[in-house]
Nucleic acid binder design. Structure first.
Length: 959
RNA sequence: GGGCGGGUAGCUCAGCGGUAGAGCGCUGGCCUUACAAGCCGGAUGUCGCAGGUUCAAGCCCUGUCCCGCCUACCA
């Protein structure tokens, strides 16, 4: 359906009994596009307030996953809500070229053909990525349509579009001119697999890795015959192979064990080099290891700093692919892993090994390839961050941009306060090439286009590196609007008072903080007024979704339905089906109960589910059962609408004015309008505060509990002549008013729910009576407002509670005593409160209707209780009200006694089970607290039940 | 090492100073003509543990134990 642009088919004349999401959902997306629902205008003459939400551009390589589904849902709710409220709402979609990620994917394709990118050469390789992008790039945006996303697709941007590339170059050049971008040689993170430098953020630290602390000895020069402890110095390391690059061994200046070695030289066992013993109080902790630290300035961040302090030589021992270079002496050419083993063995053979012990350490891994990252000396481009970071901190401190949930503000501050310069160059081919040229004698020119004098002939070469993919993402809020050109779009849509950046907290540093910094730097204003952060979707047990765990779910499988075989084939590709299935069901216990696959839950149910988690939830545990619950809700909306539309046959829609009906007299009508107003207020406040969960829960509660369970039930007798089910429609003024209110509440409820469930609401709204002022789609709104669509009436809310309490009490008694549902049981309500009396007198027939009592009576309290009657006293705002239900003739003495008997037996059974547990485990003396408590609780219940038995005997006698 | 967040019904989670909530599950009764994807009832929690503040505490404070995540160069 995703690309279907055919007009909506005319609504079918009747509604099926069960809601079929797919059939309905396929009908509307094309209609919305045709109607231009999603389009925002940059016309300066348009005076509507503006709302902007830049969509976090998914990677070109991406296909829809749960995280995208969550993001798409939340942002679509925000956008649709604003749009319905009359905003010129722009949700700006796009795609990210995703440097390393994409290059890796295409290189893998090449590898399958037995080729590397070097076989193709740079130009051909990049060409190939473009071809691939044209074919499969943007799959995800097609999938977002299935979810009902409503961005302005006409404005879709790709980070490597020509205009965005101009923005990137412009930003680079300006930052360079301002001295914020510079080139430097320093220790950086190097991924030998991707063969590129990485920023600090792209390195993921794997905590708790099991490693070893290996010890070996350096011989002291000229002390061959010296006594024990003087002829050698033992160091400890987790990376033995780096000793090939050692240029010193450091000890603590105050460590008495090594005082005699200060200034001495050590003999390197493998290369022709003497290594000085230096003292350094910063690097060395005398209590750790042997108290002597080997110093490898070229391959360790601490050692690098130590080297700078002591003017040590920096010896790089690695090639770019992670093998040892010529500095590796006898180990040159070996891969770093093999080199480690070889070095240890060689040390052992030379009698220098001094044992090892297990050691837990943190391993730095490349975010993309998962390879262990090596610190390497390298010349790269860097961006100074301090100044920009200070501005970004200030902007949040003084409230120009608000972070929601607030708790993230501390994290944001902490990151920016400790920010290091950003290594922005990557040794990749896919990305924005750095606009710099290198002259024959090492000079460098940075410019927007190649300077005329910097020709190839004159020996000038273009800088081969590309920029970190996040550099272009950082410009997103303005580069997508035409910057550096002052376009109408830029003027209208850059950070209007209502502008949100909604995204997962995991890219707060990568993306959000950088947009803040660049926005403030280039546009002199924050890029958005609010930062809204959501959590991470995890499996039902709380584990992160990953290919390894086999717990990844494709949202489309939940929307369309899918056989589990198909689901696990995607979750754990290549694994045996049984194994994959087992893993999958372990991750989703509630799915196991669904048979052989997911039914089609539909996009609306999927969206609603994702909307019900508060943003403070860092982990969003996806339970298929929960989605099922919301599919049931969609079905409820469907069927309630069927009922209402039935009641409204022949209803004159021109009676609907676009406002709540005025001068409403009927009790239930006043009540539902008051309740509707309250609900609308809660929903608006919820979405406004990025508490979409509150809006979702409240609208769910209102529609199901208030509207369906009470209003639609209570109005049934009103709408039929004489209150009989099969009677023709009543023509009374009360019935006419009820139809009007019912039509209004349905139409309003659909608008209320539309941002959350766009498809089903559009479908039903198109069939429902509605004011003539409405436009062609429900998506145009307006969104309900409490003062327009509701009628405040606190008194009627209180009164209804009393009515409800009486009905519930009567139902409860009937159910308790197992009265046949169809049986007519005499009902008496007793109160001496005048208001309550009046209130109940007018409702008495409805109460009778709801609890199946033909002739309910209202009495004063205190009279004798008729034989065979049971009582319940309900506390209400009007004082206690007695509800009496006559059971004579409906329940026999035997049934009543048997019922009590069953209850006692049930409790005794539970008690026996607990006692058995107690004795069988042998802890008669010291039973676990909870078991003892369980026993006590059951004993109490048993006692209570026996008391009730006595009471019921009295009742039984009367029967 | 530092920081942040969480521990509330069997499960997934709301509630964050005033008589413990929802969905799912469990359970009793109903195929009542919108919906059995439903309706009407019911059971279920020493709100992680220990102190403290308060007339009143899941909700505030202190300590403590678990569990996540982020961050850091302990060889």
């Amino acid at each position: 359906m995703s690309t279907d642009t055919s007009p909506a088919t005319p609504p079918a004349p009747t509604l099926d009994k069960a809601y079929e999401p797919r059939e309905v959902e396929e009908r509307w997306y094309g209609f919305w596009e045709k109607e231009g629902v999603f389009e925002a205008t940059d016309d300066p003459k348009d005076t509507r307030p503006v709302y902007v939400c830049p969509m976090p551009p998914p990677n070109v390589t991406g296909s829809l996953h749960m995280g995208h589904a969550l993001m798409t849902t939340l942002e679509d709710v925000l956008t649709r809500w604003h749009r319905m409220r009359g905003f010129n709402a722009l949700w700006l979609p796009g795609i990210d070229h995703a440097g390393i990620a994409t290059q890796t994917v295409v290189e893998r394709q090449l590898a399958r053909e037995g080729k590397t990118r070097h076989d193709l050469g740079r130009d051909a390789f990049v060409e190939r990525i473009w071809t691939w992008k044209a074919e499969s790039g943007g799959t995800i945006t097609k999938q977002q349509r299935v979810l009902g996303a409503s961005p302005d697709w006409r404005r879709t941007k790709f980070t490597m579009d020509p205009d965005l590339s101009v923005a990137v170059t412009e930003a680079f050049v300006r930052l360079h001119e301002d001295g914020l971008i510079y080139r430097a040689t320093r220790l950086i993170n190097w991924c030998p697999d991707c063969r590129t430098a990485l920023s600090d953020l792209e390195v993921e630290n794997e905590e708790g890795a099991n490693g070893e602390l290996f010890q070996f000895a350096y011989k002291v020069e000229g002390h061959e015959g010296a006594p024990e402890g003087e002829h050698e110095l033992v160091v400890a390391t987790t990376r033995p192979e780096t000793m090939l690059g050692d240029t010193a061994v450091a000890v603590h200046p105050d460590d008495p064990r090594y005082k005699h070695l200060h200034g001495k030289k050590l003999v390197h066992p493998f290369v022709d080099r003497l290594v000085p013993v230096i003292t350094d109080a910063i690097l060395v902790d005398p209590k750790f290891g042997t108290g002597a630290v080997k110093v490898t300035p070229a391959h360790d961040f601490n050692d690098f700093a130590t080297g700078k302090r002591h003017g040590l030589e920096e010896i790089n021992i690695l090639n770019l692919d992670g093998t040892l270079n010529d500095q590796g002496g006898p180990f040159a050419g070996l891969d770093r892993k093999k080199a480690r083993t070889a070095v240890k063995k060689a040390l052992d053979e030379k009698g220098l090994a001094r044992g090892s012990k297990p050691h837990v350490l943190t391993l730095p891994r490349c975010q993309r390839s998962n390879t262990i990252v090596e610190p390497m000396i390298s010349t790269q481009w860097f961006c100074k961050m301090k100044g920009m970071a200070d501005e970004a901190i200030k902007a949040v401190k003084d409230g120009r941009t608000k972070i929601i949930p607030e708790e993230w503000e501390k994290t944001y501050d902490h990151f920016l306060e400790n920010i290091q310069d950003w290594c922005i160059s990557r040794q990749l081919w896919w990305g924005h090439q750095i606009p710099a040229w290198h002259g024959p004698s090492g000079e460098i020119r940075v410019a927007r286009t190649r300077p005329p004098e910097c020709t190839e002939e004159a020996g000038w070469k273009a800088d081969p590196d590309v920029l970190d993919t996040w550099f272009s993402s950082g410009l997103w809020p303005f580069s997508t609007l035409g910057w550096p050109t002052e376009t109408d779009a830029l003027k209208k849509f850059y950070a209007p008072p209502s502008s949100d950046l909604e995204t997962g907290y995991d890219i707060l540093f990568f993306w959000v903080a950088r947009m803040m910094m660049f926005g403030l730097y280039f546009m002199k204003d924050v890029p958005f007024r609010r930062i809204l952060l959501h959590g991470l979707v995890v499996d039902e047990t709380g584990d992160k979704m990953s290919k390894v765990k086999g717990n990844v779910i494709d949202p489309l499988d939940l929307i369309y339905g899918a056989d589990f075989k198909q689901v696990v084939a995607k979750a754990l590709p290549g694994a045996p089906e049984q194994e994959a299935l087992t893993k999958f069901k372990k991750a989703y216990p509630s799915a196991a109960a669904m048979g052989s696959g997911f039914p089609a839950f539909g996009a609306d149910a999927m969206r609603f589910t994702l909307s019900t988690f508060p943003p403070s939830n860092k982990r969003i545990a996806l339970a298929p059962k929960r989605i099922e619950g919301y599919r049931h809700f969609a079905n409820k909306i469907w069927n309630a609408s069927r009922l209402v539309l039935g009641h409204l046959e022949g209803f004159d829609a021109s009676k609907l004015t676009g406002k709540a009906p005025a001068n409403v007299q009927g009790f239930y009508n006043r009540w539902i309008l008051a309740q509707l107003g309250k609900t609308i207020a809660i929903c608006n406040a919820g979405v406004d505060a990025f508490r979409i969960d509150e809006a979702a829960n409240e609208s769910y509660r209102f529609f199901w509990n208030d509207f369906c369970d009470w209003y639609l039930e209570v109005t049934k007798p009103i709408l039929r002549e004489g209150g009989a089910y099969d009677a023709p429609p009543a023509k009374t003024p009360e019935a006419e008013e009820t139809r009007l209110v019912m039509a209004h509440v349905l139409e309003t409820s659909l608008r209320l729910l539309h941002p959350l469930m766009p498809y089903i609401t559009e479908e039903l709204w198109q069939r429902a009576p509605r004011p003539s002022s409405r436009r062609s789609s429900i998506a145009f709104g307006p969104y309900p407002m409490p003062e327009i669509d509701g009628v405040p009436d606190d008194a009627v809310l209180r009164e209804f509670d009393v009515f409800k309490a009486v009905v519930s009490a009567a139902r409860s008694i009937r159910s308790e005593h197992e009265v046949k549902p169809a049986a007519d049981a005499p009902l008496v309500v007793r109160t001496d409160n005048e208001e309550a009396k009046k209130l109940l007198a007018e409702r008495l027939s409805t109460i009778g209707f709801l609890v199946r009592s033909k002739a309910p009576a209202l009495e004063k309290p205190g009279g004798p209780r008729a034989a065979g009657t049971t009582t319940s006293v309900v506390p209400t705002a009007y004082g206690p009200i007695e509800v009496l239900v006559g059971l004579k003739g409906l329940v026999t003495k035997e049934e009543e006694l048997a019922r009590i008997d069953r209850e006692i037996k049930r409790i005794e059974k539970d008690l026996a089970a607990v006692e058995k547990k107690l004795s069988s485990k042998g802890f008669t003396d010291r039973a676990p607290k909870e078991v003892v408590e369980e026993t006590l609780a059951l004993q109490t219940q048993l006692k209570e039940a026996r008391t009730r038995l006595d009471e019921s005997r009295t009742l039984a006698e009367e029967l």
